[in-house]
């Protein structure tokens, strides 16, 4: 464990708490893409189900359980408790265009052609693109509540911090995980535009608004 990865994971944790806080305080899931959240459930379940047969560490175990449980809970809040506040007419990204190619990539690029390893690859590719419905929705509405942008910033920071972690591990341990690194770079790049607007508006105390 190095500091980059620790702060990356903490940032990921923070993003979940920010999202839960947003839903609870505004009593609404307005501005949150249900499709992105559903993809995260698929990502975490397919990747972290290995807690059933693989023991890494207590830290690893607790985090995995937390991410599976919290993502399911968020889906429950969106689908049941705050259902009326979700507007599917603006959450229109075609998810099938993501899942198909990711499944194909997972079949080609994996560390071992076994069910669980292909599933792991799929979760990595899917995670890298899971934010697209959310960003697409942001693009459509052209603005976002400040709390929602903090959520996205924390989520983006998580994968961004994994990049120096990989560089550090390459030099200190001599290991590299090309699948995770490639997908991680793509995922971080997707946030570039968002981060630019976030730092030039929200951090300066203005509302997040995309140029028309």
């Amino acid at each position: 464990m190095n500091l980059f990865r620790l702060f990356g994971d903490l940032s990921h944790l923070a993003s979940i708490f920010i999202l839960l806080h947003k839903i609870r305080t505004t009593r609404s899931c307005r501005g949150i893409s249900f499709k992105t959240q559903a993809l995260y459930v698929a990502v975490f379940v397919s990747r972290y189900l290995d807690i059933l047969w693989e023991w890494v560490s207590l830290y690893n175990f607790v985090m995995k359980v937390f991410f599976i449980a919290s993502s399911c809970f968020i889906l429950y809040l969106m689908k049941m408790k705050y259902r009326p506040t979700h507007d599917p007419s603006i959450d229109t990204f075609r998810v099938e265009f993501l899942v198909g190619p990711c499944a194909l990539l997972a079949l080609i690029f994996n560390y071992k052609f076994t069910f669980t390893e292909v599933l792991w690859s799929l979760s990595i590719f899917l995670e890298s693109l899971a934010i697209l419905p959310q960003l697409f929705m942001l693009q459509r509405t052209g603005e976002a509540e400040t709390i929602t942008t903090h959520y996205l910033a924390a989520l983006g920071a998580y994968r961004a911090l994994y990049i120096p972690n990989w560089i550090y591990r390459y030099f200190s341990e001599g290991v590299v995980d090309p699948i995770a690194v490639t997908a991680g770079l793509v995922q971080t790049a997707l946030y570039a535009d968002f981060f630019y607007v976030y730092f030039t508006t929200v951090i300066q105390g203005q509302k997040f608004e995309l140029p028309a």
């Binding site: 890494v56 690893n60 991410f67 390893e117 591990r169 290991v175 995980d177």
Partner: peptide, 10 residues
């Protein structure tokens, strides 16, 4: 250089 999946990463 080893190419492998980092099992301890989340």
């Amino acid at each position: 250089m080893d190419q492998q999946r980092a099992k301890d990463e989340l």
